[in-house]
Amino acid sequence: MKNVTDSFISLGYWPSAESFGFNTDILATNPINLSVVLGVLIFFGKGVLSDLLDNRKQRILKTIQNSEELRGGAIEQLEKARARLRKVEMEADQFRVNGYSEIEREKLNLINSTSKSLEQLENYKNETIRFEQQKAINQVRQQVFQQALQGALGTLNSCLDNELHLRTISANIGMFGTMKEITN
């Protein structure tokens, strides 16, 4: 209680120190004890603190190293994966190219075979046509020949007499004779 009143009273008449200054009383300012305390604090605190900080530093270093290693491993794996990807892509390309060429070849083969069969069919058709033609021609020829033969038979029957008969036979004999000579 007295402190409060004192402090206000002292505003007016406090006698000991009126302004800023230095207190040179070594016992009152207590520097000896303070320096002892500081010295002990530094002496013991330094060891503990430096241990602590060293540990922390080592931990950080280890963490960094670990993550570096992990990073290296990850990069390596990435490289590997990339190489595999490249290989697979190349294979895929090859497959694609192969497939295309296969298809082309198949197409060509197909076209070839188709055209071949087409040709065959054409040939067959032509053959058939020719055969039919031949047949028709033969028929026509046979008919014409028959008619000619009938005509000739008629003619022969109507106007054949002995003399003509003989002449024809002799002429034919002569003709056969010459044919025989030629063949011989």
């Binding site: 402090s7 002292s10 505003l11 406090w14 120190a17 009126e18 302004s19 800023f20 200054g21 230095f22 207190n23 009152a28 300012t29 207590n30 520097p31 303070l34 305390v37 500081l38 604090l41």
Partner: peptide, 13 residues
């Protein structure tokens, strides 16, 4: 407060 020698500096009050 515990370590610095504050009392070396003297104030008016």
């Amino acid at each position: 407060g515990a370590l610095l020698p504050w009392k070396i500096i003297q104030l008016p009050h």
